[in-house]
Amino acid sequence: MGSYPYWEDVEEGTEVPSLVKHPTTRQLVRYAGVSGDFYEIHYDKDFAQSTGLPGVILHGALKSAFLAQLLTDWIGPQGTLRKLGCQYRGMDQPGAPLTCKGVVTKKYVANGEHLVDCEVWVEDEKGQKFTPGWATVVLPTRAG
């Protein structure tokens, strides 16, 4: 495992290292299988189009999983993801890369825990941010 930030290392405006994901229809089928979400709009193009969609679309929860990975990759095993929220304001189709990004918005201490709030989001190739989100993580301190 690599090196991960301590609470002292981050400040407001610190960027979370980006994560690029390459969703495919194959991934949507696998995700349907492991999550139990078999709604056909995620893997049956004819069905998706019959509901007025342009084609199959990503499960919203898969984009949540991508944002969770963005954060857990960043904080490493010493950090704790405490809160993660996001909104699915647009639909993403497989076959194009998505980039997950984040930035620190606040750092503070509460109940003895060293906390960091972040704004996170998923961007498509055109730079559209269809999945805005927010997170709170607990980071270790150098003092221990």
Binding site: Y39, T51, G52, H59, G60, A61, S64, T80, L81, R82, K83, L84, G85, C86, Q87, Y88, M91
Partner: peptide, 12 residues
């Protein structure tokens, strides 16, 4: 009849 996911908010 149709369904979309609007968003999710986790606390761990």
């Amino acid at each position: 009849k149709r369904l979309l996911d609007g968003g999710s908010e986790w606390e761990y």
